[in-house]
């Protein structure tokens, strides 16, 4: 089986630079097969013991237990798999659930905190429209209600604002940057449509994508540090040195290919990690220890790509 997959995925190195560090693929392992269920958007738990994933519609959450080597259902709500977060103490998953009527219309949304051990759930808040949750450095859970205000500190779940609390929200094509109790629209390129914002693990840089101009890394003041080009769904490595992302080919309508890449966080050294004409590899994220990249194929298999850096 291993041989099959190592030959199945060709590995290419594409770089015109001599990188300080080089990434190469050791092996690609299929974690789940679509015959077990079609799963998408994989992420590891903070301790690396579980690989979480959801359905194509983000309904429900499952994880693959590395120890038990089996798939375990974790949550079933609509939208649970979209931009969920782990608590800082690694004990819980906090996600947004949409409560829909039978015609798919949203009645309201709830933020739910669900314990990884005993699967006990707490509803943090329910409102007509909520943002997805963020966990701040101070352990606060922050969210926006109906697009208006970042709420923090208060109630049993939200403690007082910490000095280094920062969060990025992607709302109506804009990035809202919450920092130390204030929020502002973060537009490092000026007018535009911004998606996929994320803070670097050390909290000093912001990775974002503007749909007309591609992906960039800036500092917290919005000064551009690196331009990464027209890449999709970029993600920081846990040490902040690397970005993984996908590169799609389409004709404006049909996607005809997608491959996984990684680049150094200065954008200078680019490595193509997959190259297959028949499998579209998508939505990569790093494992918690940075040794692997998880991704899904378009037909719902989850893979783990083990890396070697030298």
């Amino acid at each position: 089986m291993k041989n099959f997959f190592s030959s199945f995925f060709l590995v290419l190195f594409l770089s015109s630079f001599i990188p300080a560090q080089k990434l190469s693929v050791v092996e690609i392992q299929k974690i789940t097969d679509k015959s077990q269920g079609e799963f998408y958007f994989p992420r590891t738990s903070p301790d690396g013991s579980k690989i979480f994933f959801t359905s194509a519609s983000y309904k429900g959450l499952w994880y693959y237990s590395m120890a038990e080597k089996k798939i375990i259902p974790f949550a079933s709500e609509d939208g649970a798999g979209y931009e969920y977060v782990f608590s800082n103490d690694k004990s819980s998953v906090i996600y947004r659930a949409s409560n829909l009527d039978d015609r798919g219309l949203r009645r309201n949304q709830s933020l739910i905190k669900r314990n990884l051990q005993d699967l006990q759930s707490e509803v943090i808040v329910t409102a007509k429209e909520l943002s997805t949750p963020k966990v701040l450095a101070s352990n606060n859970i922050a969210y926006m209600e109906e697009g208006n205000v970042i709420l923090e500190a208060g109630g049993p779940h939200l403690n007082k604002t910490g000095a280094n609390d920062m969060a990025l929200y992607s709302v109506d094509g804009k990035i809202l940057f919450y920092m130390n109790g204030t929020k502002k629209v973060f537009s490092p390129l000026g007018e535009g449509e911004y998606i996929w914002p994320s803070l670097s693990p050390d909290g000093t840089k912001i990775l974002f994508t503007e749909v007309h101009r591609g992906a960039f890394i800036s500092d917290l003041q919005g000064r551009i540090l690196a331009s990464l080009g027209k890449i999709s769904a970029p993600n920081w490595s846990p040490d902040g040195k690397w970005i993984t992302y996908m590169v799609e080919k389409d004709d404006g309508e049909f996607v005809t290919g997608s491959e996984i890449f990684a680049c150094s966080s200065d954008g200078l050294h680019v490595f193509q990690l997959t190259s297959t004409s028949d499998v579209h590899e998508m939505y990569p994220t790093w494992s918690s220890d940075g040794s692997s990249i998880l991704f899904n194929s378009e037909d719902g298999n989850i893979y783990s790509l083990k890396l070697k850096s030298e």
Binding site: E129, S170, V211, V247
Partner: peptide
């Protein structure tokens, strides 16, 4: 030409930020 958003995954990601019903 600036309206021609590619890759197409940008279109879905952008729609998601508006939290629409359809």
């Amino acid at each position: 030409e600036d309206d021609d958003i590619q890759p197409t995954s940008y279109i879905a990601a952008r729609a998601n930020t508006y939290n629409p019903d359809y």
